[in-house]
Design a protein around this nucleic acid. Structure first.
Length: 590
DNA sequence: ACGCTCGCATCAGGTGGGAAACGG
DNA sequence: CCGTTTCCCACCTGATGCGAGCGT
């Protein structure tokens, strides 16, 4: 897949059948061809970008299987034929069980075309399992053979925020990092088994896109080529390793330079004005890195619809531009009213920026919200109203495909309704379907209290993997310079013991599952999940502002300020241990 | 003397903006 | 002509090295 140069033989089903063991892409190192094995054939340069669902046991026109699928808003993923190899999981929100492989070859073929084609409205995915219901097989994570991993999208609120406006990612010749970048937490892996973890980016639809009249519209057919696999540099590694820490793909770069030989292992070659859907793949391998596909359970794939983006060489939607500027610490210099907003606190603060901006902007520090739940809206409202929707914008607010937010930013909120997602797909149906609701959530303290205590509150706080918190917890990219700036006495416990694998998930999340399952009709409503997510991202902003405002208001010594920060982190860590992953909805497949 | 912490300076690299270049 | 891509710029983050200060 890697650009087709990976030769279909590598992925031919015949070969798959013959070779139970294949070289892991990680083994291939920088060899693009190695990675290519993990992209679907047909994803190659001159190959079709998707496979007609002819093999599908359930055609798109079949009775809407979406009824059973929660949170399937983002539309079809035009999986290449590799789908059979690495089928995308259902889009189940922020916590995903793997699509995995069905137990049989037939099952594979069933999954392979599990993507609805074209702009066909309605359900976008075939049933998650042969049972026809993703609900029927819901199980909680368990140890032992056959267990499935659960994947948590760490910075989902931020992704959702971008997704509302149709995320755009800049691609350049030398490569541009993604922002937001992909960051996951994984649970349910075998502690001692070895896994390769990698991201594949597939076309989300067969169209070429153009930004016209403040909207993204299709124009022509998409082309498909290039390396679209990025293997996590720590692959292969043990399940314990992957579950110990946040898995970040911050180093992943997007380029449009097909001929690049520079840092190919970090580069992902995309095409401008095409819509892409990243996928996470977890492949069990042998200790030497050789892939073992003898068992279906050993390859698991996850797709988060909010990760969809359109590759561009220059930002088209000013909403996206503003979001990038506001949330990406590297773009701080473009915050025109930054001074007026945050003033001197930026100069006075003790804590280094890396632990500030990333945490404040990228991640929803849920625990902090629970500490100040009553102030959030206040902070939101204190943000300069023209910051996001000022009159200077070349593109009106209506650019936003989905979120015509009101000026006050608080009277109208958005959440996902699986109903609309399933049945009312449009040309932009690949986006999360957001529906406004009047701000009842402000009184929903419980969802806040519980769901805001997210995993990401801790290690995800370091938006970059080298952040002191990640470093402390996982020794990932440890830097002495940073470590010494963080109190070593902090009882920081960003994640539960790897040996437990989100031990509390089962008990604490199950009620939530029930809650989401019972929803309306046969749908697995993602209302709770999405609502909380939307809320969280709102709170992320408000908290960001809150923290900055606190700095501003605090006249005491800097040490006081940093002490308060430490308290927040401390509390966050406690909260995490008690409600790991409660932030997200939780789904498991049979 | 030694080890550690801290502050500062330096530099590489990541940002988006904007103008110029390119191509259909 | 218009849309897209490329390049350069200023600004910022993050990593690193160095020396001063302090405690043992």
């Amino acid at each position: 897949m890697l650009g087709g140069e990976g030769e279909s033989s590598a992925f031919s089903s015949a070969k798959e059948a013959a070779d139970d063991r294949r070289k892991s892409p990680a083994v291939g190192g920088d060899d693009p061809a190695a990675g290519s094995r993990y992209t679907a054939h047909g994803m190659g340069a001159d190959r079709s970008y998707y496979i007609p669902p002819t093999v599908s046991k359930q055609s798109p026109e079949a009775p809407n299987p979406c009824s059973f699928i929660p949170y399937t808003p983002s539309g079809t993923v035009y999986a290449a034929s590799s789908a059979g190899r690495y089928p995308s999981s259902l889009h189940l929100g922020s916590v995903l069980p793997p699509a995995g492989f069905p137990p049989s070859a037939a099952g594979r073929s069933h999954f392979s075309p599990a993507y609805q084609l074209g702009q066909s409205p309605g359900c976008i995915y075939t049933p998650y399992s042969s049972s026809g219901s993703a609900l029927g097989g819901i199980t909680l994570p368990s140890a032992g053979p056959g267990m499935r991993a659960q994947v948590y999208l760490c910075n989902r609120p931020l992704w959702l925020k971008f997704h509302r406006h149709q995320t755009e990612m800049i691609i350049t010749k030398q490569g541009r990092r993604m922002f937001p970048f992909l960051s996951f937490n994984i649970a349910g892996l075998n502690l001692s088994a070895h896994y390769n973890v990698f991201v594949e980016v597939v076309l989300a639809d067969p169209n070429h896109w153009r930004f016209q009249g403040g909207k993204w519209v299709t124009c022509g057919k998409a082309d498909n080529s290039g390396n679209k696999v990025y293997i996590h540099p720590e692959s292969p590694n043990t399940g314990a390793h992957w579950m110990r820490q946040e898995i970040s793909f911050s180093k992943l770069k997007l380029t449009n330079n097909k001929g690049t030989n520079h840092n190919t292992s970090q580069m992902m070659v995309l095409q401008s004005l095409h819509k892409y859907q990243p996928r996470l793949h977890i492949v069990e391998v042998t200790e030497d890195g050789a892939e073992d596909i003898s068992s279906d359970v050993k390859t698991q794939s996850f797709t988060f619809p909010e990760n969809q983006f359109i590759a561009v060489t220059a930002y088209q939607n000013t909403d996206i531009t503003q979001l990038k500027i506001d949330h990406n610490p590297f773009a701080k210099g473009f915050r025109d009213n930054y001074d007026s907003m945050y003033t001197a606190q930026e100069n006075d603060r003790l804590t280094p920026s890396p632990t500030d901006s990333p945490r404040a902007h990228q991640i929803v520090p849920g625990a902090r919200y629970t500490m100040q739940p009553l102030f959030q809206d206040q902070f939101v409202n204190n943000l300069p109203q023209n910051r996001f929707y000022n009159s200077e914008r070349a593109v009106p607010q209506t650019n936003s495909l989905l979120s015509p937010q009101t000026e006050d930013g608080s009277s109208q909120r958005w959440f996902v309704t699986s109903m609309q997602q399933g049945g009312n797909g449009t040309s932009t149906g690949s986006k999360l379907d957001l529906t406004p609701y009047e701000g009842e959530y402000s009184s929903s303290l419980l969802p806040y209290g519980i769901k805001s205590l997210s995993v990401q509150t801790s290690h995800a706080l370091g938006y970059y993997p080298d952040s002191p918190f990640t470093t402390m917890s996982a020794g990932w990219g440890s830097r002495a310079a940073y470590q010494r700036k963080v109190s070593p006495s902090l009882p920081w416990s960003p994640r539960p013991s790897p040996t437990t694998g989100f031990p509390e998930d089962s008990n604490k999340v199950k009620p939530q599952i029930d809650e989401e399952v019972n929803g309306s009709g046969s749908l697995i409503s993602s209302w709770t999940d999405t609502q909380s997510s939307a809320l969280s991202l709102e709170k992320a902003d408000s908290y960001s502002a809150a923290c900055k405002r606190r700095r501003l208001s605090l006249n005491g010594p800097c040490t006081e300020d940093s002490a308060s920060d430490i308290k927040c982190e401390d509390l966050a860590s406690v909260a995490i241990n008690s409600s790991m992953a409660a932030y997200y909805s939780f789904y498991t497949n049979p």
